[in-house]
Nucleic acid binder design. Structure first.
Length: 463
RNA sequence: GGCCCCUUCAUCUAGCGGUUAGGAUUCAUGGUUUUCAUCCAUGCCACAGGAGUUCGAGUCUCCUAGGGGUCACCA
């Protein structure tokens, strides 16, 4: 049987990284098995839906490159279908109308809690045959087993048994007739032919409820995998306060999707000692049975390390294209290759890379005081002045970093000074700081005229 | 609170009864580099605690502790 998995978000907010990870796991499982990965939108609660949120989710999917098969399925468009099953269950006596009002339910729950009992529906309308109260729109409840256990084998957690008493006759249709989550999920998962349901373990307790539906309707159970949550760096539940939980925020912060995916796939899953996985490798190696049981903590340092790795290994042309979103357009720059070769190993994110590039492309408007103190001292002024003269009278054309390197070697030799004596002041003159790409590279990129202009400007500031 | 799940370096993890408990990130040190970064090398750091089972336990069982999830006419 061919494998079918799905991702089923509810459009109530952006896509967060926990959701993206379970989506990735599902996607990988499908792709690994040449199966199908479906996208379904859980929008049965009409009042909570937001089109904006839906677009955000789809946009995030596009950014990371997780493609889904077939059309997106909207539960809100399938109410007729659900209605059929509700009627069927009613007819077969597997579900029933409950005339308890919300207020009555609330007071029941309060009483139970006062008695330190688990709040639950008491089943008072389960076998009701009298005349229903006036003016109450009933909800529909499904008959859950009253004794024994509901058991299933979870692909990551193992054998799970929940006592039947823990599962109420839960509501499958609200008073207004709309169906509820656990009911429609079971129906859709069955109808869509899901073979493997991979989701967060906050759904573990929904599983017995959904099994009640599967059984009542005679559907075949899929295999369930409940993946532990991702915590923040303090080991607590990931919340908005932890910064970038919105997947698109990672794009804005200069992360590459392949880095984010690589990071996420290693959160709760591993393949021996391997750390770097291309998408193809993930597909080839991923198996949901290797998913970890325990929760994992989000670790920004490792994401940053991966991102730096992927930046280093991305072709310059592609980086130039990506950099456009970060205020740097060097796609037509004649020294594009040189520029990126000189900077791509110095940025952990595209934001940092853009900063590095701007540092070279734009003449410094100020000089770092510490760098000035360290570099513009002694005979630095004289050396820089000599260097300008040397550049102006150099017999060969200067194009490559190696050309400029020759000039540097020459001045070091002639003046009998260390490289630092020219390197440090030159660096500060060119970019205003003591860090960054090689000075020979920088000079080659900005060209001789600009190099001389920057040095002259710096020399003028030295007392 | 009831029920359920989880627990190896700071973090991600390998381990599937016998290992000097391995790798990666972070951190520290050294090398490479005129600087920074990269890269390379080295180092620091872990089986939550306690009982069992066994010749032998990170690995199996139980208990304790800690963490998490869930108990909606939300999904």
């Amino acid at each position: 049987m061919s494998v079918v998995t799905r991702f089923a978000p509810s459009p109530t907010g952006y896509l967060h990284i926990g959701g993206l990870r379970t989506a990735l796991f599902s996607w990988l499982t499908a792709r690994h098995n040449d199966g199908k990965f479906l996208l379904r939108i859980e929008d049965t609660d009409l009042s909570r839906n937001s089109d904006e949120a839906l677009q955000a989710i789809i946009e995030a999917f596009e950014w990371v490159g997780l493609n889904y098969d077939g059309e997106v399925i909207y539960q809100s468009k399938r109410f007729d279908l659900y209605k059929k099953y509700i009627d069927q269950l009613l007819e077969e006596g597997k579900a029933y109308k409950c005339y308890m009002t919300k207020e009555e339910l609330d007071t029941l729950r309060e009483e139970q809690m006062a008695r330190k009992e688990r709040p639950h529906y008491d089943g008072r309308y389960r076998d009701f045959e009298g005349t229903p109260p006036e003016g109450v729109d009933p909800v529909i409840r499904i008959k859950a087993p009253q004794e024994g256990v509901i058991a299933f084998d979870d692909g990551v957690k193992g054998h799970i048994e929940i006592a039947a008493e823990e599962v109420d006759d839960f509501i499958i249709a609200r008073a207004d007739g709309t169906p509820t989550y656990n009911f429609v999920v079971a129906i859709d998962d069955a109808l869509m032919g899901l073979t493997d349901v991979i989701r967060g373990d906050d759904h573990l307790y929904n599983t017995p409820k959904q099994i009640v539906v599967y059984n009542a309707l005679g559907f075949k159970l899929p295999r369930f995998y409940h993946v532990a949550m991702i915590n923040n760096e303090q080991g607590k539940k990931l919340s908005k306060r932890d910064g970038a939980t919105d997947v698109m925020e990672y794009k804005r912060q200069g992360f590459l999707p392949e880095a984010l995916l690589n990071f996420l796939v290693r959160l709760g899953w591993s393949h021996g000692d391997q750390e770097i996985f291309s998408l193809d490798e993930m597909i080839a190696l991923f198996d949901p049975k290797d998913i970890n049981k325990s929760a994992s903590s989000y670790n920004l340092d490792k994401l940053l390390w991966l991102n730096a790795h992927y930046i280093k290994n991305t072709p310059n042309e592609k980086l130039a294209e990506l950099l456009k979103d970060f205020g740097v357009d060097i796609t037509d720059h004649d020294k594009l290759q040189m520029l990126l070769d000189a900077t791509k190993e110095r940025g952990k994110t595209l934001v940092e890379l853009a900063e590095q590039i701007n540092l070279i492309l734009n003449a410094p408007t100020e000089y770092d005081p510490k760098a000035v103190k360290k570099a513009f001292k002694g005979n630095a002024k004289a050396i820089l002045t000599d260097f300008i003269a040397m550049l102006q009278t150099w017999p060969k054309p200067l194009h490559l970093p190696s050309d400029y390197h020759e000039v540097l070697e020459k001045i070091v030799e002639e003046k009998e000074i260390g490289f630092g004596k020219i390197g440090m002041p030159l660096r500060v003159a060119l970019v205003g700081a003591l860090t960054g790409a090689g000075v020979d590279e920088m000079m080659a990129i900005i060209g001789m005229d600009e190099t001389i202009a920057r040095i002259e400007k710096a020399v003028a500031t030295i007392a």
